[in-house]
Simulated assay, not measured.
Amino acid sequence: MRFRIRHAAAVFTASVALLLTTTSSASAGADGGSVVDPTRGAAASFKQDGDVFWSYDTKADGHSAVTRVYVPSVGIAHNLWNPDGNGAARYKSYGTAIPEGTVVYYQACIGEYGTKELLSCTPGWGKAYA
């Protein structure tokens, strides 16, 4: 399974390598777009089915990728750390913790996993609906 996740992350990385930082929004009940920052080496996305946030590491720079998750209406503010290295992806499913139609925000960052210090984040946030 780890190979499949790494392969999926590699395919994702290749497809976004030329993109600049983007912020996307989606309609109610739909997946959100990706927030990508190739200069920082991180990407984040949201999948509506299962309310799953993804964190992708897209650069071999010694830093961990981090997806900042923010769902103000239900009090969720969480950092999804991905210390697995370039090409790796991690996810967290919130399942039923986020009600249907709730606005969710997410941001791509890099940080130091050992100290849990965020170093920098994309200037924009992705926005979607659970």
Score class of each variant (00 low, 15 high):
25 S>M: 13
32 G>P: 04
4 R>M: 07
71 V>N: 13
105 Y>E: 10
22 T>G: 11
62 G>K: 03
57 D>Y: 04
103 V>M: 06
36 V>W: 09
62 G>I: 01
53 F>A: 02
125 W>N: 05
96 T>P: 04
24 S>P: 07
78 H>P: 06
14 A>G: 10
87 G>N: 01
18 L>N: 14
17 A>N: 08
118 L>T: 05
36 V>T: 12
102 T>Y: 13
48 Q>N: 13
12 F>C: 02
36 V>Q: 05
88 A>H: 04
127 K>L: 15
108 A>T: 00
130 A>W: 09
50 G>V: 08
74 V>P: 14
118 L>A: 09
88 A>V: 02
95 G>Q: 09
104 V>A: 07
78 H>D: 15
42 A>Q: 08
119 L>H: 14
65 A>T: 05
13 T>E: 09
70 Y>F: 15
47 K>D: 14
88 A>N: 03
73 S>A: 15
116 K>Q: 13
56 Y>A: 00
112 E>P: 04
60 A>L: 08
12 F>L: 07
2 R>E: 14
35 V>F: 12
77 A>M: 12
84 D>G: 01
15 S>E: 14
33 G>D: 02
103 V>K: 05
84 D>C: 03
78 H>K: 14
36 V>F: 05
93 S>R: 03
109 C>Y: 02
41 G>Y: 05
86 N>M: 03
92 K>Q: 11
40 R>G: 13
71 V>I: 12
80 L>T: 00
23 T>D: 11
122 T>G: 15
5 I>V: 10
46 F>Y: 14
92 K>R: 13
61 D>T: 00
